[in-house]
Design a protein around this nucleic acid. Sequence first.
DNA 1: GTAATTGCAAATGTTTTGCATACTG
DNA 2: CAGTATGCAAAACATTTGCAATTAC
Lengths: 161, 161
Amino acid sequence: MTQETKEAVEKILIDYLEKNKHRKTSERFAILNEIYSYDGHFDIEGLYVMMKNMKYRVSRATLYNNIELLLDAGLVIKHQFGKNLAQFEKAYKFKQHDHLICNDCEKVFEFCDPRIMQIQKMAEDMLNFDVSHHSLNFFAKCRVLKENGICEHKKNIEKTV
Amino acid sequence: MTQETKEAVEKILIDYLEKNKHRKTSERFAILNEIYSYDGHFDIEGLYVMMKNMKYRVSRATLYNNIELLLDAGLVIKHQFGKNLAQFEKAYKFKQHDHLICNDCEKVFEFCDPRIMQIQKMAEDMLNFDVSHHSLNFFAKCRVLKENGICEHKKNIEKTV
DNA sequence: GTAATTGCAAATGTTTTGCATACTG
DNA sequence: CAGTATGCAAAACATTTGCAATTAC
């Protein structure tokens, strides 16, 4: 993360905390910092391990509490890729994108399509709501299968998830 | 559910079971029947209670096992509306639709937009996958608030969820 | 008959809660 | 110094698993 980004997201957090009369605790800034230093999707347990490895003394409860706050501040977005495990991703300055999940290897791919915004506008006007965020997931089968009928990505042990 | 629908979905299930060499147990037909007799979204616990109330002797494990099978057969679709609770819905002959979830009262609204299919096609071709199903959720704030700042639907105790 | 499927109960994994302690404003 | 936020442990909750009994084929 660039110094510029670091300052920008911290400013957003500070403004949010002040506006909502929450305290500026060191944990909040540490969590924000860890999240923005990481690329890709993460879950709370992963973030907990990451922070433990980085010397921090944090509890899972604090992570659960503060991820909610960061979501509300628009600094983080939440995903659910079909499993009962919430996944998160930093949100500031990252291009809106959606996901396609392989039915076979569960790897997650990203794509962009501006038409989603048109659909959003239609839904907003039709139902009289202002959308704060959306989640579009395609669950799909890979067209390229290996001899054993397994998708071509399955060789990769680690998942994008 | 009409007799016609009942027969149609049972045929789909029978074909699926035969094709995949699974047994035609009475539980499987009972579950299918209950699901198709119910309108709206349900979770496993709700289905369990529904079936218990209807004299059936079923276990949660069987419901979890068979909902997976019905999903695979395309007879049921699965949703996750931001919570760690899987919700389901019958799928046969029901028009494709997507959801908007109120941030405030958590009520779920439905809408249709054919443009989602164009996005799907784009994603399929770009990533070389065949989409089996999708999930599009908008999380949104109601434009019409009551004096207390609470959304206009909050009065309704029961949720569409 | 035999192997898949079931019900039940225990186990798992994620998230929430209760409470005493620490720290912000 | 008042009350919010924290860490830790226990509780809650949805889902999965193990296993003996049942049932489809």
